[in-house]
């Protein structure tokens, strides 16, 4: 499972300078550098979850992306069980993916911001369950600290 044991090609110490690619019209982000594992905040700055993975599909919504023939786009932010498989390997079935549509994202900085409230999202169901079944039932759980 560990990628480190795989053989890797040798790299010479001196390498030619590569040409820069034409800068795209929109803002450029590297997925891993700027998006993966960042905190997601809702419209009221309440933490929702972390950005655990991204879902990619072609423009027509077909997510069986197998080649670069056609442009592919990120259409969903994924969270939940996909984090477990990133740590231990494997891949969750599509039915277990917890999705936030990219259209809910309004800003990408040191945190990823959503334009909606976290309350209604699938991504917060565990928290809602804990609130309704455990924390909300303990006296004082719904009051401000003093």
């Amino acid at each position: 499972m560990s990628p480190r044991v795989r053989p890797r090609p040798r790299v010479p110490d001196e390498l030619p300078e590569l040409p820069p690619h034409l800068r795209p019209a929109g803002r450029v982000l590297d997925a891993r550098l700027h998006l993966l594992d960042r905190q997601i905040l809702d419209v009221e700055d309440v933490p929702v979850t972390t950005l655990d993975d991204l879902h990619v599909s072609y423009a027509d919504g077909d997510d069986d992306v197998t080649s670069g023939d056609r442009p592919a786009f990120v259409d969903q932010v994924l969270t939940g069980p996909v984090l477990v498989t990133r740590v231990f390997g494997g891949r969750p079935p599509a039915s277990r993916l917890v999705r936030i549509p990219w259209s809910d994202v309004v800003d990408v900085g040191v945190a990823v911001r959503l334009g909606v409230r976290g309350e209604g999202l699938d991504a917060t169901w565990v928290q809602r369950w804990l609130r309704d079944r455990v924390i909300g039932r303990i006296p004082g759980g719904r009051h401000d600290p003093e």
């Binding site: 997601i40 933490p47 004082g140 759980g141 719904r142």
Partner: peptide, 12 residues
């Protein structure tokens, strides 16, 4: 895990 946290919030 990116959950909501903090003493400045209500426990709920």
């Amino acid at each position: 895990f990116g959950w909501s946290w903090g003493k400045f919030r209500r426990p709920s």
